[in-house]
Write a protein that binds this DNA or RNA. Structure first.
Lengths: 110, 110
DNA sequence: ATATTATATCGTAAAATTACGATGAATAGG
DNA sequence: CCTATTCATCGTAATTTTACGATATAATAT
């Protein structure tokens, strides 16, 4: 018990859920918004910006990186992070199509 | 430790994260897709559809209900669930505006 | 070479999530 | 009234997430 039963669901359902999971923490939303605003920034900036410990911030960055939404490039001692444009577009499209499915739903509900 | 530090983030950041959390499980995506497709259905249908235990299905329904995305109406012995149109639209708009923020991001990244 | 800086990773504790059986509550049908 | 049906809730175990201090790594600076 305790583990998500991935095998029961379609590839698309699992994919949407994984994308949502990547966005399911305010720190990660804040990171993405900051990256959008500044176009790019180093990890240290985000530690200050978020107010979380360096280890915690790094952990959130790793999750976003694993999900493919951001990318990091080593710049000397620092690591410069920015949005990964292709994956971002993929996320946008998948969520968009998921939500527009429901425009077909009429006003008559139970 | 272990609890999300909500106080560090803006209302909007927390709100987006909560929405994403509601969608961050394939079973809940499957429930929403089924509701969209059938317009409405009772809990028992979803238990069959998902292949999860009745208690687990009911738990996922509760989370979607708490998030406001669905609503349930008692119909005799059963409970009929359907999408809550207003909240759905709110979700759609919030995600949409969150993602379009980044269209401003140029191609030059680090 | 050594010290400094920036980041990642490890270890770990607390908390939340996921899942299910068992039980409870409410309604319908006999 | 009694039984069956449908769903919610309780209790609980396994797992995952969140958070942080401590430590490791890697590059720059002195």
């Amino acid at each position: 018990m305790g583990a998500t039963k991935t095998a029961l669901f379609t590839k698309e359902q699992n994919e949407i859920a994984l994308m949502a999971k990547a966005l399911a923490h305010p720190a990660r939303i804040a990171i993405l918004q900051h990256l959008v605003k500044k176009n790019a920034c180093v990890c240290g900036d985000l530690v200050e910006e978020l107010g979380l410990a360096q280890a915690t911030t790094s952990q959130h960055l790793k999750e976003l990186k694993t999900a493919g939404i951001i990318q990091g490039t080593i710049e000397g001692v620092s690591v410069c992070y920015c949005i990964h444009p292709d994956t971002w577009k993929k996320y946008k499209d998948l969520f968009s199509s998921f939500f527009t499915e429901v425009d077909l739903c009429g006003p008559k509900c139970c």
